Computed example of a mutant assay.
Amino acid sequence: MTLKDLARKLGISPSTVSRALHNHPDISDRTKRLVMDAAENTVISRTRLPRA
């Protein structure tokens, strides 16, 4: 699963997923938890994760 797939599944943008995974301060704690929970239950292709 790619970052885009995870975003589509959660109904949020890929950039929001990326920011949540990188603990960006502008992302709410609720969204971070949502993304982290989904990511823990999903195998994300590391080759497709954006680089910070």
Rank of each mutant, 00 (worst) to 15 (best):
V35K: 00
R30E: 10
D37E: 14
R48L: 13
A38Q: 04
S15P: 05
T16M: 10
R51T: 14
T47R: 15
V17I: 13
L21P: 00
I12D: 01
I12N: 02
S18V: 04
T42G: 04
H22P: 01
L34E: 10
L10E: 06
L34V: 08
L34P: 00
R19Y: 08
G11I: 05
R48H: 11
I44Y: 03
R30H: 12
A39F: 06
V35R: 00
L34T: 14
H24N: 13
R51G: 13
I44A: 04
S13R: 13
D5E: 11
K32G: 02
D26I: 04
P50I: 12
I27V: 14
A7S: 07
H24W: 04
S13K: 15
A20P: 00
A39Y: 05
R19D: 04
V43C: 04
R33I: 11
T2A: 07
I44R: 03
S45I: 06
K32Y: 03
A7E: 01
A38F: 05
E40R: 13
D26T: 13
H24K: 05
L10H: 10
M1K: 07
G11S: 04
L6A: 03
N41Q: 15
T42H: 05
A20Y: 00
K9I: 06
S13V: 02
R51P: 10
T2Y: 08
R33P: 03
S45L: 08
D37P: 02
M36Q: 15
L3M: 12
L6F: 05
P14N: 06
A52Y: 13
I27N: 01
T2F: 06
V17W: 03
D29N: 09
R8T: 13
E40V: 06
L21G: 02
I12K: 00
L10P: 06
T42A: 12
D37Y: 11
D29G: 06
